[in-house]
Structure formats: structure tokens, C-alpha cells
Design a protein around this nucleic acid. Structure first.
Length: 275
DNA sequence: ATGCCCGCTTACAGCGGA
């Protein structure tokens, strides 16, 4: 039959060898403590983009050379001892924002954003907010209001955007092994959930929820009380997709086995693939 | 009811995490 010659799928792929783009989020809970696990995960699961949270070190100390040897470019927004986010990518990334707008006095490193292969990607480490009520919970809700305002601006651009990170919000009762056990926690207060829902109502798609609508999918297991062995987890790491990104959604999941390794983070990586 | 466990800090005890 006449017409355009068939080419293998990969020829049209943005990464040459892969028609799909895998974007992951992983709260590593300390770069120095987790670097071997991080490298193992990158090698085994090969995300095209990896948004990291809780790198817990200053920007200049991040092991960019080691990660370059592993095949990744790094953008880093660090902080000594606490917090800190990064974006690793196979393709070079162009930074578009460092820090969440809306409060010039906020010195915590919890937001980093970049363009990678035509997709706007953010690495988010939303405040925990415990104990509640109190100033930390107030900071969490104020941070979520700022995120809501910025997310609205991102949507207005109309492009493919992925807001990936540790949101420290358990959106629904079926996102936690036993809701009663967490009832007084900042992660599932009505105000926290309402702020998360307000984001979704803007037009974002919770990718993991869309692929696993029945819930019971965990991304975090506490180090304490044998939570991993008992599978007492909850879902707080989320990938929110703009409509243009959601149109390209192929799959989403959790690299659960990563949580079972020696010296593991208390979070497992979560990911989406976009066509 | 609290702590369990973990990572971090000009550390060796206390804080933050979730």
C-alpha cells in the first residue's frame, strides 16, 4: 500500500529509544543516607524524570557528578538538614521556578519547577503540618493556598504540567490502612483534604487515583510499629496532571518493592507514564 | 496516652518527620 513508510515507534519518541515518558516522584528522606538506594532505583526503574523530596542537604553538596555518571542531569533546591527538593532528568531541564511564590519570607526549600522535553514538571514537598492545630498546621494550609494560586496560573498556560511530590495529604479514607489511626493527624484533617480537593477542582487529575480508583494503594509506610511488615501504609505522594498531560496518561503506579530494601526510605517512588 | 524508628545536627540529645 502506498503512503508514508512505516517507522518503528521509537523513531517518533521524544527520547529516541522510548515512546513513553516516565515521570516519578520519590521522597528519599536524606541524600547521604539514601544515595545507594536512589542509584539502584534509577538503574532498575529508569525514570526519564525523577522529582525528589527531602534531600536534606545544601544545594552545593548534592552529588551531581555521581548522578551524571548514572545518566541524569540535576536541578537542586537544597536546604541544610531539612526539606530540599531536586529534579533529575535524562534530558537537560530548564529551570522555570525555584521556591513557591506568594511569601517572600518563606525560607524553606519545598518547590522546584522546570521544563523537560516539553513538559512542565514540579517537585513539591508540602509541609507536614503536625501537630495540629498550631503554627505548623497554619503554615501547611497557607502553603497549600499559595500552591493553589500558582497551580491556577500553570493551568492557564494550557500545556502539559505534572505537579509531582510528597503532598502530606491523605485524600480519602481508602488512601490509608486504617482511617481511625490517623484521624487526628494533619495529613487527613478536613482542611487539608479540602485544600487538596480544591486543587483537583481546578482541573488537575490525580494520576494514581485515576488508574487505581479503588484506593488501597500506599506510598508511605512508617518506620515504626512494623508498619511495612504489616502493610500499614497510606497514600500521600501524588502526581497531579494538567488536562493536556492527562490526555497523554498511559499508566501510573508505585515501585513498592523499593520500600522493602535495607536502609530504605519510608516512602516508595510513585510514577506516571505519558505517551 | 505515649512511643516505637529513622536522619539530621559545628551532634553524643533533641528535633522533625508522618
Amino acid at each position: 500500500m502506498a503512503g508514508r513508510p512505516r517507522r518503528p515507534l521509537s523513531a517518533g519518541g521524544i527520547f529516541g529509544h522510548n515512546a513513553f515518558m516516565k515521570i516519578a516522584s520519590f521522597n528519599i528522606n536524606g541524600t547521604n543516607a539514601r544515595l545507594p538506594r536512589l542509584l539502584e532505583w534509577l538503574d532498575a526503574y529508569k525514570p526519564d524524570v525523577a522529582c525528589l523530596q527531602e534531600i536534606k542537604m545544601q544545594t552545593e553538596n548534592f552529588p551531581v557528578e555521581t548522578l551524571k555518571d548514572a545518566g541524569y542531569h540535576c536541578l537542586v533546591h537544597g536546604q541544610k538538614g531539612f526539606n530540599g527538593v531536586a529534579i533529575l532528568s535524562r534530558e537537560p531541564a530548564v529551570e522555570t521556578r525555584r521556591g513557591l511564590p506568594g511569601d517572600e519570607t518563606d525560607e524553606q526549600s519545598r518547590y522546584l519547577e522546570a521544563d523537560v522535553a516539553g513538559v512542565r514538571v514540579a517537585s513539591i514537598y508540602l509541609p507536614n503540618g503536625n501537630p495540629q492545630p498550631g503554627p505548623k498546621f497554619d503554615y501547611k494550609l497557607a502553603w497549600m493556598a499559595r500552591l493553589q494560586a500558582h497551580a491556577q496560573n500553570l493551568l492557564a498556560g494550557g500545556g502539559a504540567v505534572v505537579l509531582a511530590g510528597d503532598y502530606n495529604v491523605i485524600p480519602n479514607d481508602d488512601d490509608v490502612w486504617r482511617p481511625e489511626a490517623m484521624a487526628n493527624d494533619a495529613l487527613m484533617q478536613p482542611e487539608s483534604r479540602a485544600a487538596y480537593r480544591a486543587l483537583l477542582w481546578q482541573g488537575w487529575t490525580d494520576a494514581l487515583r485515576a488508574v487505581h480508583p479503588g484506593g488501597q494503594v500506599w506510598t508511605y509506610w512508617d518506620y515504626q510499629a512494623g508498619a511495612w511488615a504489616r502493610n500499614h501504609g497510606f497514600r500521600i505522594d501524588h502526581l497531579l496532571l494538567s488536562p493536556a498531560a492527562a490526555d497523554r496518561l498511559v499508566d501510573a503506579g508505585v515501585d513498592t518493592a523499593v520500600r522493602g530494601a535495607e536502609k530504605a526510605s519510608d516512602h516508595a517512588p510513585v510514577w506516571v507514564t505519558l505517551r
